[in-house]
């Protein structure tokens, strides 16, 4: 009977997958109404699945082909020492010998820190070079044309903003000098433009994530609900449910309104 059940589930896997997806979506979104047990259950299921999947992938893609098989099937016995080094991480759970785990963490932190020279050179030096923009548009000047005024203005604006912002970040000395303090103050203003750009981009990015989820409900789940009819009717039903919810909320205004 169990085998039959598994076979039935397997044969209808596509439909079950979509229905499970919709169930998970509504379970998580239920927290927007208020904290509830349904949400907590699916949150724990998510943690379990993510942890289990991470372990499976690490074994399947890395440890089995690059450590286990060379050691056991290809006779490269010395890979045992990799396991010895890897086991040093777990001394973190020993109160007496926790320092042994710090050897491994130190190893990886040192490795990352050692790459900083290269990273600094490869990332920042080209930026320094690109910051040295010519004030005059050379190609226009070579052709005997009046230098592009807008280009020059743009470069001046660039220099002004760059220098003002860098002066703002100089915390090593006090901004007593009037020129320096004015530049730092201007830098703070210019930084607002950058933060505004980041804020606008963040809103766009986060909205897209919700749009993606809604797209799944609209384009994959809704046709499963009513395959014969236009799936717009599903949304009429959903809209009616939302209106009902709003009416209920109006009658109970104190429901978790923080």
């Amino acid at each position: 009977m169990l085998n039959q059940a598994i076979k039935t589930i397997s044969d209808n896997a596509t439909g079950i997958t979509i229905w499970c997806g919709a169930l998970c979506t509504f379970a998580i979104y239920s927290v927007l109404y208020k904290e509830n047990k349904f949400y907590r259950l699916f949150e724990h299921i998510f943690i379990g699945l993510a942890a289990g999947y991470g372990v499976y992938m690490t074994w399947s893609i890395v440890l089995r082909p690059k450590w286990w098989e060379p050691m056991v099937h290809n006779g490269q016995w010395y890979w045992v020492f990799a396991a010895v080094l890897g086991s040093m991480f777990y001394f973190m759970y020993s109160k007496r010998h926790v320092w042994i785990s710090r050897i491994m963490f130190g190893l990886f932190m040192g490795l990352a820190a050692g790459g900083m020279f290269r990273e600094f050179y490869e990332l920042i030096f080209p930026q320094l070079g690109a910051s040295m923009k010519p004030i005059l548009n050379q190609s226009a000047a070579d052709n005997g044309v009046i230098p592009n005024v807008f280009y020059t203005l743009q470069v001046c604006v660039f220099y002004a903003i760059l220098i003002a912002c860098m002066v703002y970040f100089f915390f090593s000395f006090e901004h007593r000098n009037r020129v320096v303090s004015s530049a730092a103050s201007a830098g703070r203003w210019f930084l607002m433009i950058g933060f505004g750009a980041i804020f606008g981009a963040t809103v766009m990015g986060r909205m897209t994530l919700f749009i993606g989820r809604f797209n799944f409900l609209a384009q994959e789940w809704a046709p499963q609900v009513s395959p014969g009819l236009s799936h717009y009717w599903v949304w009429v039903a959903v809209a009616a449910g939302i209106v009902l919810l709003a009416v209920i909320l109006k009658r109970h205004p104190n429901s978790s309104n923080e």
Binding site: G21, C24, T25, I28, F46, L209, F210, G212
Partner: peptide, 16 residues
Amino acid sequence: RGFLTSLESTMFSLIA
């Protein structure tokens, strides 16, 4: 696909 990716993407979409 039914559980893990749905749960992960829904969790992230709460930020909206």
